[in-house]
Computed example of a mutant assay.
Amino acid sequence: MASEREIQIASILGDLQIPFKMEQTYSGLSNTEGALLPVDFSIIVNNRLAFIEYNGPHHYTSGKSVKEKSAHRRFVANGSKRLNWSQKQGIPLLIIHYKDKDRLLDIVKQYVRDVRNLDIKTTQQYSKRTKGYFNMNSPSISLDSIVDSFSYEIPGHKDRKSDTFSTYEKVISEGAQDFEYLKLEPTKTGYALLPMTEINAMFSEMNRLNAEIESYKQQYEELFTDFKGQLQLNEELHSKIAEIQEQLYLQNKSLASPKDVLTVNISGNRVIELPGLPDSIRIGRKYSAPFKSYIKNMYDQYELEVKEIKMILEELGQHVSLPTIKKFVDPVKTN
């Protein structure tokens, strides 16, 4: 499959009315494995055969993997074979460096002019990286055997003249279905050709993506509606929980409500006022929750020591051991 730059070069040659053939092979030009080695562009200028090669980054740099390094060596070896063979046959060869992709039109035009000049017998420099190799010996290849297959073709579309490509204006006025390529206005890099099949495929993909976006939008709207309902339900649950907590608080408060207020003298002439004991001290053999809370409250709110709590309880007629009091005031440590 031709690259974007190769299609661009084909467009330039078509506009210059230079017959060309892509991926042409020749007897005697073979790669390192012995298979015939194709040439990117074989062109006919003034009944003279000439070559054009467009070298991408893989011709100059190698990856780190073994496979990439092997491929790079193969590209370099094939490039050398192609250059040596063309020189022996007296066939000019233009090797375009990929970094000159923005100067394709100027380079190709100048190369065609140089091929027409039969006096050139040396290497021509078209940029710092792009060179044309000339050795105008009498060509040993008969053009009669290959010239009939040359045309102003674009890869995959034989016998298509350059003036039959669609322009942007034609696409707008006549529709895209009648053309195979969209040909943009020329710049210093030549014409840009965009296959209409790819453009139509792009619009089809855009339509598919838009439909998918609408589908996602509908799903999100449904999810958002569900989410709003879930939020409302959560608010109702929180309200109910708050109501139950309030009821429990009032219930515990009533269970622990004192009959009266006790004034207690603590060591060091410290006087505090404590609520009276709760109504419920024991439930069976176990101390009640209100009584445990009463002891915990003495420890937390009044900052009484365990021994002080024991003393106060004894004054109130409740004999509770120190370990039990410690368990009530700090159950984590006791466990």
Rank of each mutant, 00 (worst) to 15 (best):
G14P: 13
L16H: 09
F20A: 14
L13Y: 01
L16S: 04
V39I: 15
E4R: 09
N46Y: 03
L37E: 04
Q24P: 00
M22N: 14
A50F: 01
N31S: 12
S27P: 04
E23G: 04
E23W: 08
Q24M: 10
P19Q: 09
S30L: 09
Q17A: 07
I52A: 00
G34P: 09
S27C: 07
S30A: 13
F51G: 00
L37S: 07
R48N: 10
D15I: 08
V45P: 01
K21V: 06
L36S: 08
I43V: 11
L36I: 11
E6W: 04
L16T: 08
I52V: 03
S3G: 10
L49A: 06
E33V: 07
E23I: 04
Q24G: 00
F20D: 09
K21I: 11
I18C: 02
F41L: 05
S42T: 14
I12M: 11
E33A: 09
F20V: 07
S3A: 01
F51K: 02
E6P: 02
D40Y: 03
I18P: 01
G14C: 12
L13M: 11
D15N: 12
L37C: 06
N47H: 13
F51L: 03
I18A: 00
L29F: 05
S42W: 02
I9W: 00
A50C: 05
L37M: 08
G14V: 11
L49S: 07
I44D: 11
L37I: 03
A10Q: 13
S3R: 11
S42R: 02
E33W: 09
S30H: 13
T32A: 13
M22H: 10
V45S: 06
A10Y: 01
G28A: 12
E6G: 01
S3K: 08
P38L: 03
V45E: 11
D15Y: 08
E33L: 10
I12H: 07
A50N: 02
R5V: 14
I18E: 05
L36T: 12
R5D: 14
D15K: 15
Y26L: 12
V39K: 10
Q24N: 10
A10S: 12
L49T: 06
Q17I: 07
E4K: 13
F41G: 02
S42H: 07
V39Y: 04
L36N: 15
A2E: 02
T25L: 02
N31M: 00
F20G: 07
T25G: 05
L37A: 07
I7S: 03
S27R: 14
L16Y: 10
V45D: 05
K21D: 13
A35W: 10
F41P: 03
F20K: 13
L13C: 03
Q8N: 13
K21G: 12
S30Q: 10
E6R: 06
I7H: 03
